[in-house]
Amino acid sequence: MDLKDAASPDARNGSASQTVRALLGIRELILGGELTPGSRISELWVVDRLGVSRTPVRAALIRLQEEGLLEPITSGGFAVRTFSETEIGDSIELRGTLEGFAARLAAERGVAPEMLDALRECVDHIDVALEGDLTQEKFSIYVEMNARFHKLLASAARSRVAEQQIERVMNAPFASASAFVMVQSIEDGAREMLLIAQSQHRAVVEAIENREGARAEALMREHARIAHRNLRLALQNQKALARLLGGNLIRRDTV
């Protein structure tokens, strides 16, 4: 390939897609447990394992370090990290704070009718999913719509700064709005807890529509407490921890 070809849009797009493939592949190996906590990741091993070239692999490893899944080691390369209960709790708390800020901005600045409609539609879909018995299919719909609700909320603030910071904390391990939702699926009272979360979703939309900034912010910060509860549940219940993607990376705090 000559220099002109290397600089072409097709070449750049191909390189980007290879990096994404490497990123997703390595993340899956880590969260799926094939790469265990503390294990060193060799670039050449990943190249052979995933069938991508070395440059995209290197870019993916750097990105995963930025996300927090990997840490550099003195001898070179990267190792899989573990995460303490406190670290994860802090990340959840930070997400709740940022989402509260976004909700307040959305309420104070006002949102377009199209955004309100999208938020309401998302909440309506969750209502349907929570009707009757909570099947696996309905639970999957809840997880999908829950993630969409939080993404829409970040956009509703009309603040690029807030949206970028929320996206950044969402990418932190176990900090996203859906990170611990699957833990609830093993509980007898799973539907009741999801109904509480759903009532908070609907109340936030109402507060934003009514331009109640302080109320919208408080609701979203309280909403994050459910994730704290699910983290505690996962750490107290081996079955719950096993259901959690990447659960083997979590360690309990030592006194």
Rank of each mutant, 00 (worst) to 15 (best):
R148S: 07
F101P: 00
S155Y: 14
S91K: 05
S155Q: 13
L23D: 11
A203M: 11
A177M: 06
L24H: 12
S84R: 09
A11F: 10
L130H: 08
T74R: 15
T97H: 07
R158G: 04
D48L: 12
D90P: 00
P56Q: 08
E71R: 15
E212T: 00
A106D: 02
G25L: 02
G213K: 00
V111R: 00
A107H: 00
G76R: 06
P173T: 05
S53R: 12
E114W: 07
G110T: 03
V183Q: 04
E108K: 04
H125W: 07
L231H: 10
Q200N: 08
G189V: 09
L116G: 08
S155L: 15
R160V: 13
N230L: 15
A147P: 06
I208A: 03
R211W: 06
T74K: 15
A190D: 10
T82M: 09
Q238M: 13
A216M: 01
N248I: 11
Q198N: 14
L70C: 06
T82R: 14
R58M: 10
A112T: 11
A240Q: 05
E222V: 04
C122I: 01
I126K: 05
A60D: 10
D253H: 07
A59M: 11
R229F: 13
V80Y: 03
L35I: 03
R63C: 08
V57N: 01
G246I: 02
N237L: 04
I186R: 12
F101C: 01
D10M: 13
E108S: 07
F101W: 11
A102N: 05
V169Q: 09
K239Q: 14
E163D: 07
M193D: 12
G14A: 09
E87S: 08
V111H: 03
E192C: 01
K151C: 05
A103E: 01
E222S: 08
I208D: 01
A79E: 11
G100F: 03
R104N: 02
G132F: 11
I250L: 07
S8V: 04
I126G: 03
L105M: 09
R63P: 02
A6L: 14
L233P: 01
L195R: 06
R49W: 11
H125R: 15
R168A: 13
A22I: 06
D48E: 15
L50A: 05
H223K: 06
S75I: 10
G246K: 08
D5R: 14
D127V: 07
L23N: 10
M182K: 09
D90E: 15
I226L: 14
L23W: 10
L231I: 08
L152W: 06
S17G: 05
A214V: 09
T74A: 15
